[in-house]
């Protein structure tokens, strides 16, 4: 059985290699991309072009991606709804707890920095959201599950609300575009504050969308981990 698989895969790889060689390797940018590069800063006000594409030109895809995380978190809450507590009830040794106590504010601030400076430097909502979610997972591992349940900032009930608030913020920005007479998810056309490119408060609605998707990703991933780890 395994030999048939290897044979099939070898044939497929050969076919793929011989055919895909012919894809033309472009020297200059494609026409759409050259427009993004030349006029991206003027159209959106963001200097990070990937973020401008993700949250302004193709913002609808980002809404879909945030919805995938939301659906995944909802699926986990649906499937893992029985309360059972696993091994890391009490957390790790005091050395790790002390170290974590020193590190965690810095990780948090770094995550917030990555989210908020998404339109200037590499980063953005998703990357920063993942950093904050990993902070939440670290806190659960180090301090134990009972810490998670009792503290208010990272507790699972608050996480569901944060996720929904992030989603509504995204949709709200989109609907602002409709209410001002433009299209859904319009950025500078809808009158958001443009500012000077390269500064923190610029690029219209892109920082707000970054924050919304960052909240959503952080809350969603932390709900996923908490559901598997034995929450309610």
């Amino acid at each position: 059985m395994k030999y048939y698989c290897v044979l099939l895969i070898a044939v497929l790889s050969l076919v793929l290699f011989l055919s895909l060689q012919d894809i033309p390797v472009a020297q200059d940018l494609m026409p759409a991309s050259s427009h993004y590069v030349n006029s991206g800063v003027r159209d959106t006000g963001a200097t990070n072009l990937v973020n401008a594409i993700l949250f302004d030109y193709r913002g609808f895809d980002t809404l879909g991606e945030a919805t995938v995380i939301f659906a995944s978190a909802a699926a986990f809450k649906m499937l893992f709804s029985h309360k059972r507590i696993f091994s890391f009830r009490y957390g790790l040794s005091p050395i790790v707890k002390t170290g974590m106590g020193i590190y965690s504010p810095f990780i948090f601030i770094f995550g917030i920095y990555v989210i908020m400076a998404g339109h200037i430097s590499p980063g953005g909502g998703f990357q920063g959201g993942v950093i904050i979610a990993s902070l939440s997972i670290l806190l659960t591992l180090v301090y134990g599950l009972w810490y998670k349940v009792r503290r208010t900032v990272f507790s699972p009930a608050i996480s569901s609300n944060i996720e929904s608030i992030g989603g509504f913020l995204f949709l709200g920005i989109g609907l602002t575009g409709i209410l001002t007479g433009n299209y859904f998810l319009s950025n500078l056309d809808a009158g958001f504050f443009a500012g000077t490119p390269g500064h923190m408060f610029s690029a219209g609605s892109i920082p707000i969308l970054n924050i919304a998707s960052g909240l959503k990703v952080a809350a969603g991933l932390s709900i996923i981990f908490y559901s598997i780890a034995g929450g309610e």
């Binding site: 759409a32 590069v37 594409i53 993700l54 590499p122």
Partner: peptide, 26 residues
């Protein structure tokens, strides 16, 4: 890299990077 700092002459294509970010998360 596709970040405008005023010092570049050629920039790589930013669209596949955006697509890949979305696809990685999914």
């Amino acid at each position: 890299p596709p970040i405008i700092t005023g010092y570049e002459t050629r920039i790589v294509d930013p669209v596949p990077q955006a697509l890949t970010l979305t696809a990685i998360v999914i």
